[in-house]
Design a protein around this nucleic acid. Sequence first.
DNA 1: CTTTTTCTATGGTGATCACCATAATATGGC
DNA 2: GCCATATTATGGTGATCACCATAGAAAAAG
Lengths: 193, 193
Amino acid sequence: MPRKTDARARAIATAERLFRIQGYTATGLSQIIEESGAPKGSFYFHFPRGKAQLAEEAIDHYVATRIAVLRNISASTTGDALSFVHQIFGTFAAEMVASDFQYGCLMQNLANELPALDAELTKRVARGFADSTEIVAEHFRGCGFAPARASSTASALVAAVEGARTIARLERTPAIFEALADVSALRWAAREG
Amino acid sequence: MPRKTDARARAIATAERLFRIQGYTATGLSQIIEESGAPKGSFYFHFPRGKAQLAEEAIDHYVATRIAVLRNISASTTGDALSFVHQIFGTFAAEMVASDFQYGCLMQNLANELPALDAELTKRVARGFADSTEIVAEHFRGCGFAPARASSTASALVAAVEGARTIARLERTPAIFEALADVSALRWAAREG
DNA sequence: CTTTTTCTATGGTGATCACCATAATATGGC
DNA sequence: GCCATATTATGGTGATCACCATAGAAAAAG
């Protein structure tokens, strides 16, 4: 008994988009249903646990995509920490420019509305950050960083990217990403020069 | 004709607290009125423009407090960039621990709900970030940094603090602040050692 | 005390919220 | 065509949302 419609997938994609732009609480189910073009009558058939379940599936998709991006960057800069960092900043900056600074990070948006989230959803957000950080740390270890330093640097990098997103949305310019790249470059230049 | 009640001030303080914990959209006026103990009948007397005005006054107060904190730290670490940075991370980490990781940054929470904000409120959020960054940049210039490098470093620091807040709330530990401090220390040690 | 201003109580507006019960309709396998 | 499952329409639930009109109470000024 295979699926016959794409209403479910479209609802998830629309939810991901709107949650990133507006946030979780500020986005009503009616808007998601309307903009996704999905039928209004079948929402609770596809998502019996309602809005929370929809958010879970949206963040699962978001995290998977983000991890894939990080893995790609890591693979293309093997052994080169500075290029890795620069490419991360560059990629996220480009994404923001492409969306005219409308899109935030879904994990961050959800994390800033923690009291509205149930335990399961909270767990997935935390896991998204942990998994992202681990991939970055793994790359740094591959550059010869000691494990502790690789972890610290990875955490710092992930935090910086999140903060940069917030500020870039507000200022509507990728300047903050360039500032972070500059500071990183200084750091490595200082170590080696 | 002096003020006779503190209902207004209490509403602002409660709004600031709840907006920091729950976000702007997720916090209803009814909750603010109830928790502040303010009379229900006089809200639109004190805040004729409603929720938006309340948020404006809340962020004005928040930004003023934050700027005062930054100035204090700057004054106590004159000419010492590393101590300045460490004390910033330490202070914000301590604030988060003290509130059991409940409080986010009001500027960041509002910035993540931009579509729900009117132009005036958006402007004040942006100004809060700009003013904070300028104070940090000023300190770095006082440490002998060239103006461009002082600005980049200040922007990067502010972004890192914002991202760290998000992650710290989620993980319920100040570890991310320590990671940032470690990375900063490495950076300066590399330059000087 | 009277007047003026400041503040609050009451009770509502329509809109939207997430959610759901019921029944009808598609669509597949047979 | 028949049956079982998958999907959708309809029409609602009570709750909460931000907001407001009106009137009354409290307090300062004269």
